[in-house]
Design a protein around this nucleic acid. Structure first.
Lengths: 346, 346
DNA sequence: CTGAAAGCGCTAACAC
DNA sequence: GTGTTAGCGCTTTCAG
C-alpha cells in the first residue's frame, strides 16, 4: 500500500487501448462517445482506481466547481446545520465548499483573497464586506452572494430573511398583550442585522402607539444579555418586554430576570429572542424566538450564485425569505394575533 | 467593473520587462531572485492586481495546500468554534479548508472521494471511515488524521482526548459522594466515543466497588435524553447518578428529572454531561460536564498531517489530549477528589 | 541570478 | 465517434 503515483487519464487510455481524450470524454456528461467505448473505459478506470483530477480540470475549464463560504464566527452556529445540506449538494455535482470562518468582519477581505486564489466559482458570504473586496470579486468574475448582509454594488446578489418584518410583527404581538415599555438588546455581527431588527421592532412599537423602545448595546454573549437586562431594569423599572437580537443573549436576559431579580417571565416581563437555537426549545427556557429558514437561504444563495455564473451581468437579485416566529412560553400573544400582525406589515 | 480576464504571471512579466519565470520566483519564498528584481516585479503585480493562481500552482507542484475536513453532522457543534482557528492558520500559509459535513458515517467514503479529487494534501476526519477509504488515502499519498476515531491502519494518525480517562474519573468522583446506582446514556457518532466513555465510566464504577452502571441507548437529541431518563427511572427507582455521553442529552435528562418527575438535581440524582456546550454554563442548567480541548486537538491534527505530508512513511502517531471536567452544580464531588481520581487513573 | 523550455492532468477545438 | 493538438497558469529543471 505504498503511495504510488496517482493514475492519470493516460494510464487509463493505455490500458483501454484508446486515446487520452476518449477517457476525458468518457468521464464528462455530454461527451460524444459510443456506449461501448464508454463502458470499456470505465472498466479500465475502475481497474486502476482512476478518478479525474479536479484541479487539472479546473485549470483547463477555468471553473473550479468550488464555492467559497465566509461565515462570521458569531453566526456560525446558525449556519452549522445548513452546512450539511450545502456540502451534500455540492458533493453531488462533484464540487466542494472552501470554508473560511472569520473572527471579525475586518478579516473578511483576507478571506476573500484566499478564496479568489483558489478560483472559486462563487462566494457566499455572511460577513460584512469592504467595497474593494466586492469589486475584486466582480473583476475576477466571481459571483458574490451575501446572506443577511447588504451592499450597494449592483453586481452582487443578496438573500435576506425578513428581519424587519418579523421584528415589526413581534412588536405588534407584544403590544396586543398590553405591553407598554419594551426594550431592545442589540447584538452580534457588527450590528448589521441587529439594526434591521431594531428598526422593524421600533416601527412596530410606534405603529402600536407605544413609545420607541429603549435600546442597549452589549457584546454577543449570554453574560452580555444577563448584564444588559439588569442595566435595563435599573434604567426603567416599569419594563415589561425585552426583545433580544439573539437567543444567546435572550437566555442571559431570562436568567437575570428569574434568578437574579425574581421577576416572572412572561408574567411580569416578556422575552423574545432571535435564531431559534436548540436551547430555546428546552424546557428550562421555552423561549419564543424567530426561526430563519437557514437551509433555504443558503440553497437560495447557491442558486443565485450559479445563475450569476452562467449569466454574469444579470441584474442584481435580492430574495427575501419568510421567517417564522416560534411561539413558546416567554411571550403571551396568541398565534393568531401574530399572524395578523404579519399581514399588516405586508 | 466588467469581468476582465484574470491577470497572469505573463502579464506581470511583460509589464516588468522580465521573464515569466522570474515572476514565479518573485512570488515564492525561496526563489533565487535579486531584491531589486523582486521589488520591481511585486510593484508591477500590485499595479495589475495580480495574485498567483493557486489552482495552477497546485497542478504544477502536486500539492494543493488544501486540507480536507470531514465532520459528522452530530459533532459539528463541538467543532464549530475550533474551525475558526483552523481556517485562520491555513489562510496564513495560503491554504484553505475543504469542508464536508456528513449526515451519517456511511457518507464519509463519498466525501473522501470528493476531497481526493481535489488533491487535498491531507484529510482530517471526525467520522468513522471504511478501510477502503483509508487505503484510498494512503494509495493517493494523502495524509489522514482521525479525530476521536480509531483505525487499524498503521499509516493514519490519530488524535484523541482521553475519553476513557475522564469518564473513569467521573465514576470515581460520583462514587466518592456515595452514589450507588449509576446509569449511562449512550450517544452520538455511531456510538464510537460513546463506547469509550462507557468503558471508562464502567471501569471506574467497578474500581469504586459499585455495580456496573446500567446503560441505555437513545438517539442523539434532547428529547432522546429526556425519554431515556424516564425509562431509566422505571427500570431502577433507586437511580442516583446519570452520566450522558453528550450535553444535549444531559439537558434532556435534567429536565425530565426536574420537570416531569420533580426529582432534585443533584440532591437526589446527579447528572454529568460531555462536551461542555455553551448551554451547560447557563444558570438554568449549570451542568457538570467535560471539556475537550477541541482547538488543540484540531491543531494537533493539522500538525500530524503536515508531518506526514513531509514524511509519508513515518510510523503511526497517536496523540492524546487531556480533557477537563468542568465542575458546576449537577454533581457534588469536590474538585480535589476529581483530581485525585484522575491521578489514580494514570 | 536570470531566461528558455518542458511539463503538471485535463478539456476543447480541430481534423479525420 | 475518435484521435490529434494546443493550451489552462504555474513550477522547475536546465543552460547561460
Amino acid at each position: 500500500m505504498s503511495a504510488t503515483r496517482r493514475k492519470t487519464s493516460y494510464d487509463v487510455a493505455q490500458l483501454a487501448g484508446v486515446s487520452q481524450s476518449a477517457v476525458s470524454r468518457a468521464f464528462s456528461e455530454d461527451g460524444s462517445v459510443s456506449q461501448k467505448m464508454r463502458d470499456k473505459i470505465r472498466a479500465a478506470a475502475d481497474e486502476l482506481g482512476y478518478r479525474p483530477n479536479a484541479i487539472a480540470r479546473s485549470l483547463g475549464k477555468g471553473q473550479s466547481g468550488l464555492i467559497g463560504m465566509i461565515i462570521n464566527r458569531h453566526s456560525q452556529q446558525s449556519y452549522a446545520a445548513a452546512l450539511t445540506g450545502i456540502t451534500e449538494i455540492l458533493r453531488e455535482s462533484g464540487g466542494g465548499v472552501l470554508l473560511q470562518v472569520v473572527d471579525a468582519d475586518s478579516l473578511a477581505d483576507e478571506a476573500i483573497a484566499t478564496l479568489l486564489d483558489y478560483q472559486v466559482d462563487a462566494i457566499i458570504c455572511s460577513s460584512v464586506l469592504s467595497n474593494t473586496a466586492a469589486e475584486q470579486c466582480a473583476k475576477s468574475g466571481v459571483a458574490l452572494c451575501l446572506v443577511n448582509r447588504q451592499t450597494d454594488s449592483m453586481l452582487v446578489d443578496e438573500v435576506f430573511s425578513d428581519n424587519e418584518g418579523v421584528s415589526f410583527a413581534i412588536a405588534l404581538g407584544l403590544a396586543s398583550t398590553g405591553v407598554q415599555n419594551a426594550a431592545y438588546i442589540y447584538g452580534p455581527e457588527s450590528g448589521f442585522v441587529s439594526r434591521l431588527r431594531f428598526q422593524g421592532f421600533s416601527a412596530g412599537c410606534v405603529q402600536a402607539g407605544l413609545a420607541k423602545p429603549s435600546k442597549i448595546y452589549c457584546d454577543f454573549t449570554y453574560q452580555g444579555g444577563y448584564d444588559a437586562a439588569l442595566e435595563l431594569l435599573d434604567l426603567n423599572p416599569n419594563l415589561d418586554a425585552i426583545f433580544a437580537a439573539t437567543d444567546t443573549m435572550a437566555f442571559g436576559v431570562m436568567d437575570a430576570l428569574r434568578y437574579s431579580k425574581g421577576i416572572a417571565v412572561p408574567d411580569t416581563i416578556q422575552v423574545v429572542g432571535f435564531d431559534d437555537e436548540a436551547t430555546a426549545a428546552y424546557r428550562a427556557y421555552q423561549l419564543t424566538s424567530v426561526r430563519q429558514p437557514m437551509a433555504v437561504m443558503l440553497l437560495e444563495a447557491v442558486d443565485l450564485a450559479r445563475n450569476r455564473i452562467k449569466n454574469p451581468k444579470s441584474p442584481k437579485r435580492r430574495v427575501e425569505t419568510k421567517s417564522k416566529v416560534i411561539q413558546r412560553k416567554t411571550a403571551t400573544w396568541t398565534i393568531q394575533s401574530a399572524i395578523d400582525s404579519g399581514r399588516n406589515q405586508n
